[in-house]
Design a protein around this nucleic acid. Structure first.
Lengths: 114, 114
DNA sequence: TCTGTATTTTACCAATTAGCTAATTAACCT
DNA sequence: AGGTTAATTAGCTAATTGGTAAAATACAGA
């Protein structure tokens, strides 16, 4: 497997089960059993998916009695988004217009400061 | 492998070689040999990577004599970006402020219309 | 038609991944 | 201590991935 963080993140996201787990975690912490509940899959399989997400830094886990609550960590998502940004002009039709607009805003704010 | 387009796209992006190829293609069309040039890798290996990108819809290819020029197709990137968008609030500190700001703008424009 | 260039296909190998079941560890509660 | 629940580890199999070398295909030009 790749060792660079960006590849690890992309690879962790390349699975619908793992993306669904992240979606669940975006609504708050959850235990492994709670995360596993919607899936027709054994608990060890879920545990493995979690480890993939954890290794990618997308999930961290605490300790609460016999539970190991998982929570979303968005750092890697930020890196992915930053990578995506360089391609925005290829898919965002309004990018050029928005870009112009933001430049205008910045310009305006700068003259407001003065 | 997964069959859903989003997983296929993420999975195609989870390799530094393939991301480098996309970066090269973002500067314009290129042949397989041109794409292969920076890599310490045989041509068939590059060809396989290209097929992965093609299957993900990230690259399309034309035909020009014995050359098969590749070009970037950004559709799947748009889908990835759309998926990312639902997590933006977790990593973009300025998201809330920007969100408020955009709401203000919209409100202002609406009253301008009236 | 022959030759060289561009690219793909085939056959093969090693490493990884995703799933399972069974066994194990950890922590709680009587 | 004993029983229950939460979660992980171990060991297996099957499928996939990423690479190679060698052969095959497609085209251009002499």
């Amino acid at each position: 497997m790749q060792t660079d963080p960006l590849s690890t993140a992309f690879s962790a996201l390349a699975d619908p089960t793992r993306r669904a787990m992240l979606a669940r975690l975006s609504m708050g912490e959850a235990t492994v059993n709670e995360l596993a509940e919607p899936f027709a899959m054994t608990l060890p399989a879920v545990s493995k998916h979690l480890k993939v997400l954890e290794r990618a830094g997308l999930v961290s886990r605490g300790r609460n009695a016999q539970f190991r609550p998982c929570r979303l960590e968005a750092g890697p998502l930020k890196d992915v988004a930053a990578w995506m940004e360089q391609y925005r002009r290829f898919w965002d039709d309004s990018f050029d217009r928005l870009d112009d607009y933001l430049k205008q805003i910045q310009h305006k704010e700068r003259s407001d400061d003065a």
